[in-house]
């Protein structure tokens, strides 16, 4: 926290170096708080999935939960891409679960136990890597399956000849913007939500610091709002993970079925 009891809403996003590891070129690779939360998310996800590996014909509760997630993603892939989408379900499922777990972990009230939660997906560096990964897969699949014919993606069906100079340019720009929109959407949504919560929290602290009357007058409505916003943020955590996975599946559909 910043000095003099002031709450800096951006401080929560700072990545702390925990220990150095090795150098790549002249860049240092360190184990950071961000890395720690990613490792925790991966391990939690792994533990969660192990519960679904009992492979019973009549599933228990845990297995139903895991199968609910897998069924959700494979159903989405089936609806958006078709039977050929099955091949890409592992990637989209990993993406969805990893992002969802990171989003939700960042919202956990772990501060009560003295742990500082950190929302990994509020970092553009992270969401950018995931978005570029998705975009690269779309490019590779598209050119692999269709060769140079993949460029016909930029000429939608029914484009009039006299607009041929304009439409492909617009389509190309919209195509190239995809990784940015993918990365920015998640990063901005997570950042904004956490800033909002921090701001309302600071209202309570600053109000109480000013005087008890102001503290109660400002604090109670702020707390009420924060409870609502916390619920909303949980929703956003799920929705943003879903949107990332959904858009990836739609982009993959372009590459696989090519209108």
């Amino acid at each position: 926290m910043a000095d003099q009891g002031k709450v800096d809403p951006m401080h929560q996003f700072e990545v702390q170096k925990m220990f150095d590891m090795f150098h790549v070129g002249n860049h240092e690779v360190a184990f950071t708080t961000s890395a720690m939360w990613m490792v925790i998310a991966g391990l939690l996800l792994w533990v969660f999935m192990i519960g679904g590996m009992k492979r019973q014909l009549v599933p228990g509760r845990w297995q139903v939960a895991v199968e609910g997630f897998t069924g959700f993603i494979s159903g989405m892939m089936n609806a958006n891409i078709g039977p050929e989408g099955r091949k890409y379900t592992p990637y989209v499922f990993s993406l969805f679960m990893f992002i969802l777990m990171l989003n939700v972990l960042g919202l956990m009230p772990l501060g009560l136990f003295g742990v500082h939660p950190f929302t990994v997906t509020s970092h553009f560096a992270i969401t950018g890597v995931l978005a570029i990964l998705s975009f690269a897969i779309v490019l590779i699949v598209g050119f692999w399956r269709h060769g140079l014919h993949f460029f016909s993606l930029f000429v939608p069906h029914g484009t009039p000849i006299w607009l041929m100079w304009l439409i492909p340019v617009i389509e190309l720009v919209s195509f190239l913007v995809r990784p940015f929109s993918l990365a920015l959407r998640l990063f901005v949504a997570m950042t904004a939500g956490h800033v909002l919560m921090k701001v309302f929290a600071s209202f309570i602290i600053d109000g109480l610091a000013a005087s008890p009357a102001i503290g109660i007058g400002v604090g109670i409505p702020s707390l009420a709002l924060m409870i609502g916003i916390s619920g909303l943020e949980l929703l956003v955590a799920g929705i943003q993970a879903y949107v990332f996975a959904l858009l990836t599946s739609l982009y993959l559909n372009d590459a696989i079925n090519l209108h």
Partner: peptide
């Protein structure tokens, strides 16, 4: 160290998730 660490760790952890969970466990489920 920031970008290098972030990229390294996201690739490592997401790689784990993809290969172990996505390709290892998901097909069985």
């Amino acid at each position: 160290w920031y970008a290098a660490s972030q990229i390294f760790w996201v690739l490592l952890t997401f790689g784990f998730v993809f290969f172990v969970i996505g390709r290892g466990m998901l097909p069985k489920i």
